[in-house]
Design a protein around this nucleic acid. Structure first.
Lengths: 341, 341
DNA sequence: CTGCTTAACTAAACCGGTCTAGCTCTGGCA
DNA sequence: TGCCAGAGCTAGACCGGTTTAGTTAAGCAG
């Protein structure tokens, strides 16, 4: 005989299927004595719920979805994602909730997957990353009516729970620090321009430069790849009046930039200070180790998972959540311009 | 009205549910004319199959499982996994097969997840990584009867399809190269000792050293973390008769080792040559860029996914598959011992 | 024209759960 | 004693597909 079903348990325990279902799901409708008996029988027969059957009945599927719209090859490169994934998993697996992961080409495909998974009851909720400026995914999620946690920026539009860190404040802390040790010409290798956090950082940098009376800061948009990071760095460094400090939006780009500097004979931090907006092993293990914003991406993942699980349990709307503002970890890639080392 | 079901299509097209099912699945039982009509109606109504309903009927669930038994925090660090994931996704998403991902603490928990997912019909097959020496997971998978693709080593035990690259040959190519440019004292920072590929590499190094008449090579086991990589490097370099070349089993450790060398004032490659067994952006973007074994992990992921999909389609047992032996990419972290920069 | 085969299709069972309507007790209270 | 409320439980519909058994009509040989 194959796997036991609730019908088998019902027969064995001498009750109806319905009673078994009530007992196993801890809901009223059976006496304590009966519930115990049923649970014991289920245990004995080594019963496991059949997820498909559950999902068909409209109940939970105990899985959440994460769809990432970036070329598959670049995901592997980004420590941010793998760190986030780790954090998510840590919490989700503790609750035996699986993660449905899919990488797609573009936002249109991403929305299509949302629709499909929702209509198939494949997942109970979504995690949304890479929030865009006028994000077309939010209305879709609203329409689907599944709970979702959106990573990035506060703001309205969509009924999803938002979790974010204060990018603006973070950028200000970088600029304040650089200005304090004497830098006047700061450049910025930004990320994809239609991401909300990219814009927020660019604006923060510009505002801070004005306030502190620095030269107008240059923000160069990139696709987050090491290739563009290296290329843009090379361009910046070979111009007259080159910056004395560069802020990189991701650690991969920062490390690539560090490599370019070395290659061009520009000493770091002697002639160029480097700050990474993202901290990971990467920033720590290169030489010199990079001054970086330490945002605990793992913890972020944990928080996202926790919030989503709460939302699944129907714990009210659950309000937006701000993560602690990342603090700058000063390492050896920064020093006063023209300074020693 | 909610999503259309085949009953809706049947009504609209004036046929029975059964006919619709036949038509949509391309099986005999309906005329060409009727099939076309049904397909057109389905298209018009924007019908999507409900995966749960399908799975309930005993059919496929269109998802495969990947369970990784490592501390969640370390996954994010390992480019190997994220690259592999990317490759898997590239193929899976093209076939609209989702990936069920879970990170657990140990092998026991991993096997438990296999059992659960199998009995819940949550997945159609598994991808198994980190093959161990006497791997307890293989009998479990046999028992569950689901197709699986195992990453690592050829060999018997288990009915799963195996995919691997020739670690032995790869290690030999590294040692041959190092010996050819004059190295006699080679050390090796290995991975977790109960992994099959770790043992294979250690043995290959020892054999090659004997054959080439080098000093007995030292293999130090680690947990793959940057911390242990750094610590072991420090130990090796501060001993008298220190190695002139170190082979690292992962790029994270190699980069960490590079950092330690810099810190200790040991010039690379002047006084120490470094080879990484794993190539990734990491190896390319540090300075100096690392000589590394280029195994295309992304392609490996693609191949694994393809093989698993084939197995799902019941394409016979499908025999074991060897990936091209990784070839050594010489960069600037290696040179003759005592040689110039 | 009869009898037989086969293609095309329908009706209904089935997968393994969830959930609702309703039945049967028991106890409390007027 | 009669009535009602509620606890505890059962029967069966239901979710959306797949699959099998059965029906109908057409085609063809004899």
């Amino acid at each position: 005989m194959g796997r036991p079903t609730i019908a088998d348990i019902a027969r064995q325990a001498g009750v109806s299927k319905g009673a078994v279902s009530f007992a196993l799901n801890g809901r009223p409708g059976v006496s304590e004595a009966t519930r115990d008996r049923i649970l014991r029988v289920a245990e004995e027969m080594n019963w496991r719920p059949h997820s498909a059957a559950r999902a068909l009945g409209g109940a939970r599927s105990d899985a959440v979805g994460l769809v990432i719209a970036r070329p598959a090859r670049t995901i592997g490169v980004e420590p941010f994602f793998s760190q986030l994934l780790s954090g998510l998993q840590a919490v989700l697996s503790a609750s035996s909730v699986a993660l449905h992961l899919m990488v797609v080409e573009d936002t249109a495909a991403e929305m299509e997957v949302y629709r499909r998974w929702a209509s198939e009851h494949r997942v109970d909720g979504f995690i949304v990353v890479d929030l865009q400026v006028k994000d077309p995914r939010l209305p879709v999620l609203d329409e689907l009516g599944l709970p979702a946690v959106v990573l990035g920026g506060p703001g309205k539009g969509g009924n999803q729970l938002r979790i974010w860190a204060d990018d603006r404040e973070a950028m200000l802390s970088i600029v304040d620090y650089l200005a304090a040790i004497g830098h006047r010409r700061i450049a910025h290798l930004a990320g994809l321009p239609h991401f909300q956090h990219t814009q927020r950082r660019i604006r923060a940098l510009r505002d801070a430069s004005r306030r502190l009376g620095l030269e107008e800061a240059l923000s160069v948009p990139t696709d987050f790849s090491d290739a563009e990071g290296a290329a843009a760095t090379r361009t910046l460094l070979s111009r007259p009046g080159r910056p004395t400090a560069i802020v990189y939006d991701s650690d991969v780009m920062a490390v690539a930039g560090l490599g370019v500097a070395g290659e061009m004979g520009v000493s770091v931090p002697g002639e160029l200070s480097i700050v990474s907006f993202d901290d990971s092993v990467l920033a720590r293990i290169v030489h010199p180790p990079l001054t970086a914003l330490s945002r605990d991406t793992f913890a972020l993942g944990e928080q996202v998972a926790r919030s989503l699980l709460e939302a699944l349990d129907g714990a009210g709307p659950g309000r937006d959540l701000q993560m602690p503002t990342p603090r700058l970890t000063v390492r050896e890639s920064t020093s006063p311009p023209g300074g020693g080392s």
